[in-house]
Design a protein around this nucleic acid. Structure first.
Lengths: 202, 202
DNA sequence: TACTATACGGAACGATGGTTCCGCTTGTCA
DNA sequence: TGACAAGCGGAACCATCGTTCCGTATAGTA
């Protein structure tokens, strides 16, 4: 295990007031994040780093200066994405109709996952190690979804024998399968089955 | 594209009466198939060929003498597996109660997919190229499932807006997600949602 | 403007895994 | 049983990809 340079900015751990990054370094860091975001969204985590580096207009070495590992770079993006979902879920929980908020969130979730291919790995395909750092963000999403779910269950619109975990997995898996089938309309049909399966049995 | 040696036995294309394999070669071919079957079932297609060769007690070269490509070896096994499923589906169609045969087949399908990890790729994760040869077997399974499905739909136990394709994808995706979650009980909960979603709405 | 810590680029390294090649072994047939 | 085609083993080859290293460039500063 190599010595950790602690170059990260904006993470949870920032005890020592590290000297601010040089201007060009800040610029490059932002570019790398932006490039990775779009590249991972388009093709998933399996894209080689060269591609990210090229899209960002920097060398491979620069990418590694900012993120010690491909996985860490990926995590940085996943945390952002998953957190955004959490925020959305919380908002719906507060302002929406508890009977429908859960299903509306599902629709939003699906649209996001379909646009951002890498999100799939956050739910289903992720290697085990990946979870370690992004686990917090995922926990929060799990909790938010669980709350939405409970509200819907209390309102009597969703069956009571499922957990947020299960729902997220089902959605992730379905989106993945749908992508592979590269026929657009199938997603809706698959989701129709899911939605009806989730409803409290009439 | 290299010249095709046409070493395959028992495939659809066998116009020239090729000399039969030597006794040891037949033995080895069988061993390779058996080894690949169990190894792929246990760990999926991503297992390196070395492992298959070792398990079969032969050298790598021997594997490649019999199957020009890893993919071809995989296909040989998939065709067998998928065909077995087709046979099962047809049998249920002939002897079972049309109202329940479809769901009973689903249960069997799930149990098979959970035991044989590689089957998942036949439905959801397969690289595109893989399909080319195994496509026939899959078509037949699709057709059989479609027939089961139609029977159930006619009997009024399954919703009418889904296709066999959709069902297979949903099952495959769900099993995959369930595997990744490595918590055994979840499969049942996920499938409960699926089953209820597939039922004709009460 | 000159100096230096910081940052950069990308060639090179190492691991992994599919595939090929070729010298040796062995089944088959006369 | 001898000869030869068929088959075998596995080292070597090649491509991919994550990661490291180091000589060079440059932002920040006196």
């Amino acid at each position: 295990m190599p010595t950790e340079p602690d170059l990260e900015r904006g993470g949870r751990g920032d005890p020592e007031p590290t000297r601010p990054l040089r201007a060009d370094a800040q610029r490059n860091r932002a570019r790398i994040l932006a490039a990775a975001e779009s590249v991972f969204a388009a093709d998933g985590i399996e894209v080689p780093i060269d591609v990210v580096a090229e899209k960002a207009g920097v060398g491979i070495g620069t990418v590694y200066r900012h993120f010690p590992t491909k996985e860490r770079l990926f995590e940085a993006i996943m945390i952002e994405r998953v957190s955004a979902l959490t925020v959305d879920a919380r908002a719906r929980l507060e302002t929406g109709d508890p009977r429908s908020a859960f299903f509306e969130f599902l629709d939003y979730l699906v649209s996001e996952v379909l646009i951002k291919r890498d999100l799939i790995s956050a739910f289903a395909v992720a290697g085990v190690e990946f979870e370690v750092v992004a686990a917090d963000a995922k926990q929060e999403l799990n909790a938010a979804v669980a709350d939405l779910l409970t509200a819907a269950q209390d309102a009597g619109t969703v069956r009571t024998d499922v957990t947020g975990q299960i729902v997220l997995s089902l959605i992730g898996a379905t989106c993945m399968a749908a992508k592979q089938l590269h026929s657009g309309s199938t997603v809706d049909e698959m989701l129709a089955v899911l939605r009806d399966g989730l409803r409290a049995n009439a």
